[in-house]
Amino acid sequence: MTQRPTEESGLKPSVSDAFRDALVSSDEEEARKILSRFTERHTPLEFVETVIIPALDSIGNGWANQEYALSQVYISGRICEELAESVLAKSTGFQRPGPKMAVVLLNDYHALGKQIVYSVLRGAGYDILDYGRMETDELVRRVVEDRLELLFISVLMLASAMEVKAVIDRLRSEQCNTRVAVGGAPFRLDERLWKEVGADAAGKSAADALSIVQMATEGRLS
């Protein structure tokens, strides 16, 4: 019988904090040791839920508050992606509930934000498609074909950010009700832009990607 980590035991905060510290130090070896120790007494799913997700959430919010840098968010996501895949592969039948979703880089050629969203959500145990870089026509066709419930669009250039409106207009004209969440510098520096292009949500950090998925899962994204 596994011991469920609780706030009272002090286990959850300390393990998650130690894991976060290993991540932001790019210390993959220490992160693996924490995983190994934790899963001696807990399930892999508990590791994802009580250690990985709080750590990624903390790091994502820390970036938004200028406590951490984007490189730390990226490396943390990559480490968690690898760990989650390795532990969940041993956890038979586990599928973290979430919407059918994908992430795409729209039009421009700056892929880091897309990669971070992908790694963080994979690290948190979600299934997400990586569409790579696409332009509007191909993206709309693919979203409709895949019957996505949630699409993350990452951009860096203002022109690409403004193109999101064309994507959403095209999706709606095809009677496609996929929720669209946007992220990237133009949306961070201009806080009104995401509404102007018709997006359903905007993320300022990797932590926001986690909460957006949670909102979509609970039907609160509309």
Partner: peptide, 12 residues
């Protein structure tokens, strides 16, 4: 080399 690959190079 791309942002992701460069961060890997820089850190590792």
């Amino acid at each position: 080399m791309g942002f992701s690959a460069y961060i890997e190079l820089l850190c590792r």
